[in-house]
């Protein structure tokens, strides 16, 4: 048994394989925070993140047979969540529900809402990016994808990926500049 998959986890996974609802609930509960944090930075709202989270866990429970127990479960889970988020993004793109980039550039931070910077608030800043910037930023900066991989995942060019990342950073700086510097310092410590 690999050390990163504890005996408890393995027991839970076995229960999930047998479609035991209690095991599924416990697994969900155990990895809720981790998975939700991934989903949040790929979506613009908690509702949307919840949708992706549940879609992702549904895949986990139904495709658990394909999980290689010799690999870390967390890695597999995060990959599923990211892929689910990307699927969701592609669907949204097809439905054309996103604002285009030009409109998105008008995004601003409501300073009355952000009074204190916290992890949630910083992730909230990511959420306020346009989908194209948000995804590239999350994939590249947080999840460590290369621009080539991002370009392939999002069906864009490598140049566009780099450009989006650069502009995402600019937007985040811009948003941060509107936030109290003391709050920033507190979070950065």
């Amino acid at each position: 048994m690999p050390e990163y998959n504890s005996a408890v986890l393995q027991e839970l996974l076995d229960g999930c394989l047998q479609k035991n609802r209690r095991s599924q609930e416990l697994l969900y509960k155990q990895f809720y925070g981790y998975a939700m944090s991934i989903c949040l930075r790929y979506t613009r709202s908690r509702e949307e993140a919840k949708e992706i989270l549940n879609d992702g866990f549904l895949k986990v429970f139904t495709k658990l047979e394909s999980f290689d127990a010799n690999r870390p479960f967390k890695t597999w889970l995060s990959r599923i969540m990211i892929n689910t988020a990307l699927d969701h993004y592609r669907q949204e793109v097809r439905r054309d529900v996103f604002d285009d980039v030009e409109v998105a550039e008008q995004v601003s931070v409501d300073e009355t809402v952000i009074s204190k910077l916290s992890h949630e608030e910083l992730v909230g800043l990511i959420q306020r990016l346009t989908p194209a910037y948000r995804l590239v930023f999350s994939l590249s900066v947080i999840d460590g994808y290369t621009h080539e991989e991002i370009a392939e995942q999002l069906s864009i060019s490598v140049g566009a990926s780099k450009s989006n990342l650069s502009r995402a950073r600019e937007k985040l700086r811009e948003m941060l500049s509107k936030i109290n510097i003391d709050d920033y310092d507190r979070v950065a410590r």
């Binding site: 925070g33 939700m36 949040l40 930075r41 549940n54 429970f61 992890h119 930023f137 999350s138 947080i142």
Partner: peptide, 24 residues
């Protein structure tokens, strides 16, 4: 942002599980 993302630990919402359970 990496730090915030990694350390973010959203609170568990039982309703989320209930929704998933229905789907399951």
């Amino acid at each position: 942002f990496r730090k915030s993302s990694e350390e973010l630990d959203p609170t568990y919402e039982p309703d989320d599980w209930n929704d998933l359970r229905k789907r399951l």
